[in-house]
Simulated assay, not measured.
Amino acid sequence: MTENTSYRAGHVAVIGRPNVGKSTLINALVGAKVSIVSNRPQTTRHRLLGVATLPEGQLVLVDTPGLHREQGKASATAMHRWMNRAARGAVEGVDAAFLVIEAGRWEDEDTAAYELLHSSGVPVLLVVNQVDRIKDKGSLLPYLAKVSEGREFASVHPVSALKRKGLDGLVTAVLPLLPQQAALYEEDAITDRSERFLAAELLREQLMRQLGAELPYATTVEIEQFVDDAGMARISAVIWVEREGQKAIVIGKGGTRLKEIGGKARLGMERLFDRKVFLETWVRVREGWSDDEAALRAFGYEDPGRPDR
């Protein structure tokens, strides 16, 4: 822990609608993969903290599910209600917030996210992500002026989280908004979550990436065993689906799809955990788990709330 009296440390909520790159931004700031990423909306389901420790301060970044409008049957499930509660609860007790939007767009859900943050009273920095995708750079300044009009932002930052462009300015702007205090986590910490949790997330990431179009929200992962054995992590994981037909999709012909999913997840675990991993996976059915509050709790979906202080 640093004892520098000018050091700053605090919690920063990362809020936005689905699929604007919140998790990619957090991973880029932390310098390690602590939050899973796919091109499917609502990939992030759990609140987690990403810890970015710098010489001048420490950012404790609160990653959250994307805020979305609850309309229609698909968004009326217990899972979707839980994710919205998690996103809204993450604002409580933070020192500042990043409102992440997609460059060139402003949707109703962006307005809802802004209003949530504005009503909380915390300083809000607008993070305009994916500026590398804007071909006409001349359109960027008028766009930034338009989205800032009538809204209060501490500062505005065009960035590319994927290419790690514009992040230094973002860090420089947010640090003065944090309390002067010692680091809240050890210098080598990157998240508040356990390796067991991260293993489940990395396996779920592969499910979202490879099956997102077929089973966007019908799968979750439960780690039944996580044992360190002579420098190797031995992990047993269950992939839960809601119907027998979905089980067949996950397994694939002759088990080929499940093997590919498990293989890529294992490689991700080895990179993150810095040791060999032996991963066993099974696929089981629990009907209606995503609309069952008790099942969500059993699968580790904790009650959403404020970050630990």
Rank of each mutant, 00 (worst) to 15 (best):
E187L: 12
V221Q: 03
L215D: 06
G300M: 04
R286S: 14
N27K: 01
L258K: 06
L258N: 05
T53S: 15
L116Y: 06
V221K: 03
E293Y: 03
E149W: 01
E302H: 11
L48S: 15
E222V: 15
S38T: 15
T43G: 07
A294M: 11
R306H: 06
E56N: 13
Q42A: 07
D63T: 10
G72S: 14
D308Y: 11
I36N: 01
L99T: 02
Q206I: 06
A97E: 00
A28W: 09
V20F: 11
L207Y: 06
D292A: 08
G212Y: 01
E270S: 07
L25Y: 10
T281V: 15
Q206H: 03
A213D: 12
M83D: 05
L117F: 04
E115N: 13
A248V: 14
R8N: 09
G31Q: 09
F278S: 02
K276Q: 13
E115I: 10
R243T: 08
L144C: 10
A90H: 05
T172V: 14
E152L: 13
T220L: 06
P123G: 08
R297C: 02
G150S: 10
R47D: 03
Y217A: 04
T44R: 02
A173W: 08
G50V: 10
G255K: 01
A189D: 15
D168C: 00
K22T: 02
L25P: 06
A113V: 02
G255D: 11
V159D: 02
G231A: 08
M232P: 00
H118I: 05
S35I: 03
S155V: 08
S155P: 07
D303L: 11
V30T: 09
V156R: 09
